[in-house]
Amino acid sequence: MKEVVAVRHVAFEDLGSFEDVLADRGIKVTYLEAGRDELFERVEQDPPHLLVILGGPVGAYDTAAYPFLAEEMALIRARLAREQPLLGVCLGAQLIAAALGARVYPAGVKEIGWGPIELSAAGNASPLAEIATPVLHWHGDTFDLPAGAVRLASTTACRNQAFAVGRQVLGLQFHPEATGAAIESWLIGHACEITGTPGVSVNDIRADTLEYASQLEDQSRKFFGRWLDGASA
C-alpha cells in the first residue's frame, strides 16, 4: 500500500480535505509530530510515496529555538535530491524554499482570513486552476522564489503564494486543505494572533468560512487529485 507521511506542527493544521482524496485511493496516511517524533530516521528508513510538511506558527528561520526545523529541512533536501514527491503548505512551503536556498523573512503584514489568489500563466496551466474560490490565508512570513522554481500564484500582500519545482515538488503559502468543520479549532488555536492583528476578527473569519469553505473543499479535492496524478507519473 502506498503511504503519505505528513509532518504536523499543531494538531488542527492537518491534511484536511486532502485526506479524503488519499482515503478514496486507498493510500495510508501517517502523521509525524514535529518536535516529538524522530522525523529523519522514520522517513529515511521507509521513504513514503509522498512527504507533506504542514503549516505551523513558527518561522522557518527559528532553528535555534526549534531545532526540529533543521531536521525537517534535511528531510526536504533528501527528497529533493532523490526527486521524490514533496508538498509543503504554509510553513512547509517556507521550509522547502529555505532548503532550496531562498530567503524566508517576515512579510511586514499578516495575511489572515479568506481571500482570492491570482494565478500566473503557469498556475492556470497547473492543477491549481481547479481552485476558483477564495482560500484561507494564515501567515506573517514570506519568501523569495527559489532558484529553479516556477511561480504559480500570488496575492497583493504575498507575491509568492505557490511555486513548483518540476512536477513533483509543490509549495503552497495559502491553505487549500482547510475545511469548514475544522475552522473553530483554528480560531481557538490562533486566538492571540487574531486579537493582535488589526482588521482581523473571529466573526469575520467565521462568516467567510460559511460562505467559501464548502466550495473550497470540493475544488481542493480536485486540485490535489490532479497534482497527485502528475507527481506520481
Rank of each mutant, 00 (worst) to 15 (best):
L170F: 02
D37Q: 05
Y105D: 12
A207T: 14
Y66P: 05
G196R: 08
A107M: 13
F143A: 03
E217S: 13
G59A: 14
V43Y: 06
T197E: 10
G123R: 00
D24Q: 15
S220A: 15
H49N: 12
V10I: 15
A153T: 03
E19I: 03
Q94A: 11
H175K: 06
E44L: 14
I205H: 04
H175G: 04
C158R: 10
Q215I: 12
V135W: 04
I53D: 02
A97L: 09
E33A: 11
L100C: 10
A60N: 00
V7S: 04
E33W: 15
G166L: 03
P198L: 12
S154W: 07
L50I: 12
D229I: 02
M73P: 08
L80C: 11
L87F: 14
A157C: 05
P127V: 04
G189S: 07
I183C: 03
H139R: 06
G166D: 00
A207Y: 06
P127S: 05
S154Q: 05
A11N: 11
I53M: 07
F224M: 03
E44H: 13
L75V: 10
A153P: 05
L87P: 13
E41C: 03
E71K: 14
H190C: 12
R103T: 15
A93W: 08
A65F: 03
R25K: 06
R226G: 11
D14K: 01
V135A: 06
V21D: 09
V89C: 09
V5F: 01
D144S: 14
V21Y: 02
Y212C: 00
G113E: 09
G230V: 15
A98K: 15
G108V: 09
D144I: 02
V135M: 11
E130M: 11
D208R: 14
A122N: 06
R36P: 00
H9Q: 03
H190G: 08
R77Q: 13
G225H: 11
P127D: 03
A99Q: 09
G115I: 00
A107G: 13
A132N: 11
Y105A: 13
R206T: 00
R8G: 02
I53W: 01
F68K: 03
S17L: 08
I96K: 13
V89L: 12
A153G: 10
A65E: 14
A182L: 08
